[in-house]
Write a protein that binds this DNA or RNA. Structure first.
Lengths: 125, 125
DNA sequence: GGATGGTGCTTCGGATTCCGAAGCACTGTG
DNA sequence: CACAGTGCTTCGGAATCCGAAGCACCATCC
């Protein structure tokens, strides 16, 4: 079921033999939906199906896989009430995404300034 | 060649209908090798084949696709000498990744403290 | 001239990953 | 009992990624 192993610092990373922690993080975050899940989970603890809905109805099989990876990587855990949440480490990770959010606003503004072909209605938010 | 369109703020994003700039950024960054390419390109301008080598010999077809996406998103451009480089906006994006790097070190330390099963030799940075 | 090796980039068959509908076991609620 | 919700799994097909091979081009060397 789990084709490629969960990226971990100190272990060989998918497509790399170095295992440097940054590369492991880049590999972990560079998987479809992972960034989004961390983001949504950072707002509040969520159950499986609700989290799935927050992620635009992403595939349940992939969500399950990502959730497993995130738990193995100590970024997420299951609350006593069964909901998924971010660990302190996971919250740190999400907070480290803050500058990325700020950047994305500048990005939207920049593209609205000089649109390649079209970029109207950038509602940012 | 280009299956899914380049994520752009203000446009519908893969798997989403909102098009909010953050989701677009999350979609763009959440593609295989994209984060890594930005990181490597941020160190210095690189030619295609050298950049490919820096990215652990990633597939040339995917590299070409990512490079196109990055150019469309105004994060990368081609220098007069033919090398690829980051635009000012691209450099901002990379800098916004700084906290993520710091976090990845804490991540490595945390996992070295309480290893799930094994995480030795975390050579970090 | 011709051989060699470098470049950016493309093609294409096969491997991997993702998708999503369907279903399972379980827990409530009426 | 029926009904609806949950977390999670299965599985066939679609999308994506991989990587070896090759193309056209350019520089160097003999």
């Amino acid at each position: 079921m789990n084709a490629s192993p969960t990226p971990m610092p100190g272990r060989p990373v998918r497509g790399s033999a170095t295992g440097r922690s940054l590369m492991a993080a880049l590999d972990l975050f560079g998987r479809r939906w992972t960034l989004r899940i961390i983001w949504e989970l950072g707002n509040e603890p969520l159950g499986f199906r609700l989290l799935q809905r927050r992620c635009d109805g992403m595939s349940s099989s992939v969500l399950q896989q990502r959730l497993t990876e995130l738990q193995e990587a100590r970024l997420a855990e299951v609350l006593p009430d069964g909901n998924y949440t971010l660990t302190p480490l996971g919250h740190d990770a999400r907070e480290s995404l803050g500058p990325v959010i700020e950047w994305s606003r500048r990005w939207a503004a920049e593209l609205a300034d000089a649109p390649p072909s079209a970029a109207e209605g950038a509602d940012d938010g």
